[in-house]
Amino acid sequence: MLSSKVILNSLLDNDFYKFTMQHAVTKLFPKAKARYEFINRGQHAFPSGFAQVLRESINNMGALQLSKVEKEYLAQTCPYLDPTYLDFLQGYRYDPDEVSIEQNGPDLSVKIAGYWYRTILWEVPIMSLISELFYKMNNLVGANDEEIINTAKSKIEHYAQLGVTIAEFGTRRRHSYHTHKLVVEALKAYGGQSFIGTSNVHLAMQYQTKPIGTHAHEWFMFHAAKYGFKMANRLGLEHWAQVYRGDLGIALSDTYTTKVFFSSFDKMFAKLFDGVRHDSGDPLVFADQTISHYQSKGIDPKSKTIIFSDSLNYEKVARISNYCQDKIGMSFGIGTNFTNDVNLPPMNIVLKMTEAHPDDAQWTPVVKLSDVRGKYTGDPKMIALSKEILGIKD
């Protein structure tokens, strides 16, 4: 059983926005704490002994450290990351004691707790371990290497024919690290101008493509815990701009619904940020809302970009591309459909921040509302309170 463990080989085998958020947290909220919890949306049944093997894989992460070459890569590629942060990251080590794991029959519990600047890096690699171990321990054999490469090649060539740009966002629910590498290698080899990068920093470095990402829902969720729901979007954007001064300018819009977000996304933010990311709800409705919002601020929508990233496949991308053509800039981030298309059902799992502890406050439940009720996460009472405060009606 112990031979089933999965070993991660790089501290940078993680989504880029985890590092950009960690950089901001170390600057602005170094005393804040956070708690995260695994959510098994797909009700997957985990095999006997899964928790033990996951525990060993996570324990092995304690040995990961940023290499000198990786540090130099970040310094050259991401000049907006402070040298002090890169020094910190070079000294950072995962602490497996921050992660608790339990298994009760087929049910798996994973919880993370500690200082936010430390725990923020756990989510993506733990999810990738859970996904890879699930297939491995259930003896689920998918496509072979040639099939994986050919599938990725065919997809990126079809996207190139649409004339759209594509980034790979599939670390957290990948079939395996090996599959992920094959996919990025194929996208780089056959994507031409259409493939613009990956959210995985390790693979971006390995295949000399751009690391892509800005911030995630937890950035705004923490701001709600510290400043209240009404100020979460505005102060989240202000603090992001304070740290990055115009770099990393794609704003995530749906933590508390797009309608609420745009009420805070005033002319200053609309001009400062390069665009917005769509992650839930009808993409065409979102496009109309975004275009209308920019027009209402006297801004040409074609000077801005929407990054679409919600469960995309070729059909959805083609529909969105056709609809948005000549109306607004667009690009697409595709995750599971790239890294877990191996003739096996992909997992439906998430690992979300559940509570935040600002340094001058107390433990506070955090929630994400999104533009789809089924994607709400968090304490039901806090969800109800947030909706009341923000005037959100179903």
Rank of each mutant, 00 (worst) to 15 (best):
K368M: 12
S176I: 03
S154V: 00
A224C: 08
M347K: 09
V276H: 04
T119W: 06
D15A: 10
S309P: 00
A356N: 05
E355F: 13
G197F: 04
I389V: 15
R319K: 14
V317I: 15
V184H: 03
V260C: 11
G49N: 08
N14V: 09
Q103C: 10
F50I: 05
V124N: 11
G281F: 06
L385W: 06
N138F: 08
L64C: 02
P47Y: 09
V367G: 04
M61V: 04
F50G: 04
I307M: 14
S370R: 15
L108M: 07
H217L: 08
P106S: 15
E132V: 05
D279Q: 10
N343H: 13
K259E: 15
Q193E: 13
R373I: 13
S3I: 11
H158D: 14
A251L: 03
H278F: 03
K5R: 12
G249A: 15
E168P: 03
G236Y: 09
Q103P: 09
F134P: 02
K368Q: 13
E315D: 15
D300N: 15
F269L: 05
D274A: 12
A232P: 07
K111C: 08
V342H: 02
N9F: 00
F308K: 01
I58H: 07
G378M: 07
V317A: 03
K297V: 01
Q76L: 12
G275N: 05
L344H: 09
A361F: 04
K271A: 11
F46M: 07
L8D: 05
T198F: 04
T77D: 06
S370A: 13
T171C: 11
Q206N: 10
V99S: 02
L272Y: 15
